[in-house]
């Protein structure tokens, strides 16, 4: 398989920080709003360099999202930031009416997404956010996989005209996407070509999928690894081309089965090319406190879990 070197260990939220800073330098209409979590969601670099374009709303996420809508309809590119649980779940109605339905150029930044938020537990570990945002007409949903891709995704979101949900995480994870790898919203990236099974992964699980690919290769199984960084709009062509070749699929995400990447792929396959499919994700339950990697193991989100799912999918062909 194609080799991906670990270039370091960094959190994806720091990729957001650098992307937002660069977006601010690129376009003077970029503004950022935060609800009392500025260093945590990594809006600090932007706030320091552009204090006049940074707005502290206090712990009032609904107000923050609607203010962003008013700024966007006045011509600004407005980023709002909070933990993903609050920037999506708490403000669903504001995003729906004032952002998506009102065609506003607002970027919803959801940091600390998924189970790897860790010790804070289920109140903060949103596992439904991809589903919530995917259901909304007019919304783009992006879940980048490492520091470099998050930086690229943030810049791409700033350049795109329309509502975007940008989901990223808290812990340090391997950096493996080369800085110069092209990033295009809605365009999947084939990380390894294979013929036996298509493994579609998003966010932190992309690295786990590459690890799974190595283990499968050792057992003579040739897996195709596709990084779906944009869950909506889904790169349907890439998904169908791959499954038509391999005959089965596995989806991998740090999210509920319901509403997530797996749901999106399954819907596409059922309509166009029915094939055996397995899901690696969380099955209709809330998370709990723990260390990020402990939780990844506990909820079966590791490379070995992807290996088992891949074999199961292959056996069902």
């Amino acid at each position: 398989m194609k080799e991906y070197k670990i270039l370091g260990e960094k959190d994806t939220r720091s990729g957001f920080a650098e992307g937002l800073l660069e977006a601010g330098r690129e376009n003077e209409n970029v503004v950022a709003l935060c609800a009392d979590l500025t260093p945590s969601v990594r809006m600090d670099l932007f706030a320091k360099e552009f204090p006049e374009r940074f707005f502290q709303t206090g712990i009032a996420e609904s107000n923050m999202v609607s203010i962003a809508s008013g700024m966007a309809l006045s011509g600004k590119v407005a980023f709002v930031g909070s933990f993903a649980a609050f920037s999506t779940g708490r403000t669903y109605d504001q995003i729906r009416q004032s952002v998506a339905y009102s065609d506003c150029n607002v970027k919803i930044a959801g940091s600390h997404a998924g189970i790897t938020l860790g010790e804070d537990g289920a109140t903060h570990q949103i596992l439904e956010d991809i589903g919530l945002m995917r259901m909304m007409p007019n919304m783009v949903v992006i879940n980048p996989c490492d520091f470099n891709q998050t930086k690229q995704a943030t810049l791409a979101a700033a350049r795109y005209n329309g509502p975007v949900y940008l989901r990223y995480g808290r812990p340090k994870v391997p950096v493996f996407i080369p800085e110069d790898m092209p990033f295009e919203i809605g365009k999947a990236i084939t990380l390894n070509e294979g013929k036996d099974v298509s493994i579609f992964a998003t966010g932190h699980l992309v690295w786990q999928a590459l690890e799974a690919c190595k283990q499968l290769e050792a057992e003579g199984i040739n897996a195709e690894i596709i990084n779906i960084h944009t869950i909506k709009p889904l790169d349907g062509k890439a998904v169908l081309n791959s499954v038509q070749k391999t005959g089965c699929a596995v989806s991998c995400e740090e999210h509920m089965y319901n509403g997530g990447l797996g749901d999106a792929i399954a819907q596409l396959l059922v309509r166009n090319h029915p094939a055996p499919m397995e899901f690696v994700g969380i099955d209709d339950e809330f998370g709990q406190s723990g260390k990020p990697m402990e939780l990844m193991k506990h909820y079966h989100l590791m490379a070995e879990d992807i290996v088992l799912a891949a074999k199961k999918a292959i056996n069902r062909k």
Binding site: F55, S62, N63, M64, V65, S66, I67, A68, S69, G70, M71, A72, L73, S74, G75, K76, A78, Q94, S98
Partner: peptide
């Protein structure tokens, strides 16, 4: 809130 956003943009 939306009006505040428009006012800040102004």
């Amino acid at each position: 809130s939306v009006a505040i956003g428009a006012a800040l943009a102004k």
